[in-house]
Simulated scan of single mutants.
Amino acid sequence: MARSGRSSDWGFPRWRGYESGRAATTVRLCDRHGCEEPGNCPAPKSPNSPERWHFCQKHAAEYNQKWDYFEGLDREEATARANAEQQENAGYAESAYYGWMGSGDGSRSADEMRALEVFGLEADADFETIRKAWRNRAKEVHPDVKPGDAEAAKQFQACQLAYEVLRQAEERRTWKG
């Protein structure tokens, strides 16, 4: 008795038609009015909401540009959420050491960015520029230069901590193990 579903390709599947048996796939378009690009970038409609907009990459970047992730949370809740996410993403932070990125391309951590703000430097500043800024700032607010000035001592401590954060980050980037 012969089978009814026998193919005529003699066992060579390459002789069959490519994708001939598949139905057309539906593509979700961008939710921005008038955009005809595929909407493959989901974005939340409001904070802590499961509902999503679906934008193309261009409109998702525009939508997320001023997005406040911590909107509606008080300071303690925002800190708790940031710490929880940092703990969840600790493996990614450790793997950043093995990256091929250099300064100024998004490879700086939030701590490094805050440290750069102390010196008034941009994210792409090289370490020599950081060292010069640190020395100049330390000379201005050193307790020996301004004895008895509590604000200067506080600024000097912030300057020292910022430099230490940036120095350690530079050592991690340049370490050849």
Score class of each variant (00 low, 15 high):
residue 20 S to A: 09
residue 6 R to V: 11
residue 20 S to D: 07
residue 34 G to Y: 12
residue 18 Y to K: 10
residue 28 R to T: 15
residue 9 D to W: 03
residue 37 E to K: 12
residue 35 C to I: 14
residue 5 G to F: 05
residue 18 Y to E: 08
residue 24 A to C: 10
residue 24 A to H: 13
residue 31 D to A: 08
residue 24 A to Y: 07
residue 47 P to C: 05
residue 21 G to N: 10
residue 32 R to S: 11
residue 13 P to A: 01
residue 14 R to V: 01
residue 14 R to T: 02
residue 14 R to G: 12
residue 9 D to Y: 00
residue 8 S to V: 04
residue 26 T to E: 15
residue 26 T to N: 12
residue 21 G to H: 10
residue 9 D to I: 03
residue 12 F to L: 10
residue 47 P to E: 05
residue 34 G to R: 09
residue 22 R to W: 06
residue 24 A to I: 13
residue 11 G to T: 03
residue 5 G to M: 06
residue 30 C to L: 03
residue 31 D to F: 01
residue 19 E to I: 04
residue 10 W to T: 01
residue 35 C to N: 10
residue 32 R to L: 15
residue 44 P to A: 10
residue 37 E to I: 01
residue 11 G to F: 03
residue 52 R to F: 06
residue 15 W to K: 09
residue 44 P to T: 06
residue 53 W to A: 06
residue 31 D to C: 04
residue 47 P to S: 00
residue 37 E to T: 09
residue 33 H to W: 11
residue 37 E to Y: 01
residue 19 E to N: 13
residue 16 R to H: 05
residue 51 E to Q: 09
residue 25 T to H: 12
residue 48 N to P: 00
residue 37 E to N: 11
residue 24 A to E: 15
residue 12 F to R: 11
residue 8 S to T: 12
residue 40 N to R: 14
residue 11 G to I: 04
residue 42 P to Q: 07
residue 22 R to Q: 15
residue 19 E to A: 14
residue 21 G to I: 08
residue 11 G to C: 03
residue 13 P to K: 03
residue 27 V to M: 00
residue 18 Y to V: 10
residue 6 R to W: 09
residue 28 R to A: 13
residue 20 S to T: 11
residue 22 R to L: 14
residue 7 S to L: 10
residue 35 C to V: 14
residue 22 R to Y: 15
residue 26 T to R: 15
residue 52 R to C: 11
residue 44 P to W: 04
residue 53 W to L: 06
residue 41 C to L: 03
residue 34 G to Q: 12
residue 51 E to D: 13
residue 26 T to P: 03
residue 23 A to L: 14
residue 7 S to M: 08
residue 47 P to Y: 05
residue 36 E to F: 02
residue 10 W to G: 11
residue 35 C to P: 13
residue 29 L to Q: 11
residue 27 V to Q: 07
residue 38 P to G: 11
residue 6 R to K: 08
residue 54 H to C: 05
residue 9 D to P: 03
